[in-house]
C-alpha cells in the first residue's frame, strides 16, 4: 500500500472524522463532565458533584417515567413482536403474487414520523367522535365514552395501541427476511417425519430466525427506552394526566430544555445509557444461554 493511497483513504474519512470529533466525541466527553454540574441555560454552570444523580434517583417522577417506559418496552417485546412474527409467517409462502403488495401496505405506517402519528392518533382517540371509540362501539356496543388520553389508566394502553399500528409491519419486514433462512428441504423433511405445525415452528423455524429475532428484540428494546416524540405529540407536550405517559426521555427533555438544567439532563442521559447497555447485554446473555442449555 503506497503512501498516496493511505493519504487518500484518510482524506475520504476526513469529513466524518471532523464532524464526529466536534459533534460526537467532544460532546460525549462533555456529557460526562456536565452530569456533575448544575447549569441554568447554556452559559452558567457550577460544580455540584453527585448531586444531580442523587436528585434524579430520589425523584418519584423519574421512577414514574422509568416504570412507564419499562411497561412500554415490555409490551413492545411480548405483544408487538409476536404479532409481527405471526404476520410474517402468514405472508411467508413459497409463491404468492400478493406478498409484495401486502408487505407494502403493512409497512406503510413506518413512513409516517412519530410526531405525525401522535397528531393523527390524538384525534382518533377522542371520546364520542374519535374513530377508535366509534369502532369499539360498532363491534361491541361499548366504549364510546372512553377518554383514552385524559384517563390515567388508559394513557399507556393508548400509547401501546398506537405503537402497534406504527411498528408491527416494520418489524415484520425483518422477520420476513429472517424466514428466507428457513430451509425448504428441512421443512419438507419435518413434514414427512410427521411433525405438526407447532413442532415445525419450534424445531425448524425458530433456530433459523434466531439471529434476526435477537436483532429485532434488542433494537425494539433500545427504541422503546428512547420513546419520546409519540407521547409528546399524543399528549400535547405534557406527561399526560397524572404523568401517566411520562417517559425517561421526556423527563430528560423537561429538565434540560424546559427548565434549562442541562446538568440534570446529562445525568439522566447517562442513567438511560447504562440501563439500555445493561438490558442489551442481558438479552445477548440469555440468548446464548438458550443456545447451549
Amino acid at each position: 500500500m503506497n503512501r498516496r493511497r493511505v493519504v487518500s483513504a484518510w482524506l475520504f474519512l476526513s469529513p466524518f472524522l471532523l464532524v464526529s470529533g466536534v459533534f460526537f466525541i467532544y460532546p460525549f466527553l462533555w456529557a460526562t463532565i456536565l452530569a456533575f454540574y448544575q447549569t441554568s441555560g447554556a452559559l452558567h454552570s457550577v460544580f455540584v458533584g453527585w448531586s444531580n444523580f442523587r436528585f434524579v434517583l430520589g425523584d418519584p417522577e423519574f421512577f414514574r417515567a422509568l416504570r412507564n417506559t419499562t411497561i412500554f418496552a415490555f409490551f413492545s417485546i411480548f405483544l408487538q413482536l409476536p404479532l409481527s412474527l405471526g404476520l410474517a409467517l402468514l405472508l411467508n409462502t413459497r409463491k404468492d403474487r400478493w406478498k409484495g403488495f401486502f408487505r407494502l401496505i403493512l409497512f406503510s405506517p413506518h413512513l409516517v414520523g412519530p410526531i405525525f402519528v401522535g397528531i393523527l392518533f390524538s384525534v382518533l382517540f377522542t371520546a364520542r367522535f374519535g374513530m377508535i371509540n366509534r369502532f369499539l362501539h360498532y363491534i361491541s356496543g361499548h366504549g364510546l365514552d372512553l377518554r383514552w388520553l385524559a384517563d390515567p389508566s388508559l394513557v399507556m394502553p393508548a400509547l401501546i395501541l398506537t405503537s402497534l399500528w406504527m411498528y408491527v409491519g416494520f418489524n415484520m419486514i425483518y422477520f420476513l427476511a429472517g424466514l428466507q433462512n428457513v430451509s425448504d428441504d428441512l421443512m419438507d423433511a419435518a413434514r414427512v417425519d410427521g411433525a405438526g405445525p407447532w413442532q415445525r415452528f419450534i424445531h425448524v423455524i425458530v433456530p433459523a430466525i434466531k439471529p434476526v429475532a435477537l436483532f429485532v428484540v434488542i433494537m425494539s428494546t433500545i427504541g422503546s427506552f428512547q420513546l419520546f416524540e409519540l407521547p409528546y405529540a399524543l399528549l400535547n407536550a405534557t406527561g399526560g394526566p397524572d404523568n401517566a405517559g411520562l417517559t425517561i426521555v421526556m423527563y430528560l427533555y423537561q429538565h434540560a430544555f424546559e427548565s434549562g438544567d442541562l446538568g440534570t439532563g446529562a445525568a439522566v442521559g447517562w442513567i438511560l445509557a447504562l440501563i439500555i447497555f445493561a438490558i442489551s447485554m442481558a438479552q445477548i446473555r440469555i440468548s446464548r444461554g438458550l443456545e447451549s442449555p
Binding site: P27, L262, G263
Partner: peptide, 20 residues
C-alpha cells in the same frame, strides 16, 4: 461503538456547542 450511545445523551452538550 457510537451506534450504541443513545443520541439524547449528547443533546445537552451539543446544545451548548451550538450556543457557543
Amino acid at each position: 461503538g457510537s451506534m450504541m450511545i443513545p443520541p439524547i445523551l449528547l443533546l445537552a452538550p451539543v446544545y451548548m456547542i451550538i450556543v457557543n
